[in-house]
Nucleic acid binder design. Structure first.
Lengths: 199, 199
DNA sequence: GGAGAAGTCGAACGGGCGTTTCAACTTCTG
DNA sequence: CAGAAGTTGAAACGCCCGTTCGACTTCTCC
């Protein structure tokens, strides 16, 4: 086995630029617009350099996903340990900036098995994190864990957030503002109940 | 203006075959695998014929969407008028066969504006249908329309269903069976409550 | 049965794609 | 300061794409 040759600092920086450009393209034009040429054009390099930096296009998507997923998982863990876990979690989930990229990843993973595998690992990790914490949390909110088990609450919350963001990004007018307002009020009530019960 | 000459019966049938093949490809390989050549290959015709039959590829996606959307909207209307509206609706929403295609459409619409427009019209129509019916229905289930307004219930139910189907199709193991079971039990309770209240 | 529309075919257009190759160049290291 | 390792540029590979075109066959209707 040949020992690894270390990259120069400038190269490491360029890799970050390539990942940034890829995210940007995914958000602006959809994941299908990502190609070695489009990414290279945005960064100001030649197409083959993209492959030199990150490998195949599959590897590129995986690298972007991993970088983002780590950040979001950390944010989620923080949110679930905050003063108002439900509210913090919801704010994170319902934020278009975070969710928009993942909608693209979900779509892209349908015909990029390598990406799907990584996305699956991440989805399982996030769901596990949510469920474990909800196990302790739900009783504090006055929710019966038999009637509303963590698996259901987690899936419904995330599904609702994704649905709202997807409709809003698509410009579909499906009363998302109304739903968001009602969800905010529901969270108000639940957080108040929790506060009362822990006093 | 020359009056339109009507298409031959065989052609009408071929158009249906083209739409069928497109659906099949979307489900099996993802929407990105749809091309005049792939569709033509599946049907056993030449690529230009696809354009002769349905026009551009955008038109092809729109035609497939419209055909399916009409069917699903009708099924939804039926479900919401059935004996157990909530259960029927949930069964329809949570059925992978129906939802899988729409996940592809949502993804494809991100970079096909023409498709996005039609999808938006359809999403609005479906949401409106759900909300109008829920307005009458929710009180019967013992749900306060102030606490749980139709917009929230509709978005959450649909979001949950899409999330579950997406995870299952992707093969991600995110406790979807647990969530489905809990949802079924919740619907059992709600339908029982409704039955009791209407007696 | 013949005019003309509907349908079919094969070839071709310009273009974008992922990726490889290879030679030239820079930068670091001993 | 030489040579190794890292980096860059240009060109090219084969492939698939949407779509158009013109010539052909088949059908329909008067």
């Amino acid at each position: 086995m040949a020992e690894k040759r270390r990259r120069r600092a400038a190269t490491v920086e360029k890799v970050e630029q390539v990942l940034d450009a890829t995210e940007r393209i995914m958000l602006d034009e959809g994941y299908a617009a990502v190609s070695s040429r489009s990414v290279a054009g945005k960064v100001g390099i030649n197409p083959p350099m993209v492959h030199y930096y990150v490998g195949s296009i599959d590897d590129l998507f995986v690298a972007v996903l991993r970088r983002r997923a780590e950040g979001i998982a950390a944010q989620l863990a923080d949110a679930l340990e905050s003063d108002e876990p439900l509210r913090s979690w919801w704010q994170l989930a319902a934020d278009p900036r975070g969710s928009a990229l993942f909608i693209e990843f979900i779509a892209a993973s349908n015909h990029r098995p390598a990406l799907g595998k990584v996305l699956g690992e991440y989805a399982r990790e996030v769901r596990k994190l949510q469920m474990e914490r909800l196990e302790e949390l739900l009783p504090l909110y006055g929710l019966d864990p038999i009637e509303f088990p963590p698996a259901l609450v987690a899936a419904a919350t995330q599904g609702l957030a994704f649905g709202l963001v997807a409709d809003e990004l698509g410009g579909h007018d499906t009363a998302t503002a109304e739903a968001r307002a009602a969800m905010d009020r529901l969270i108000d009530r639940l957080e108040a109940r929790r506060k009362a019960s822990t006093d």
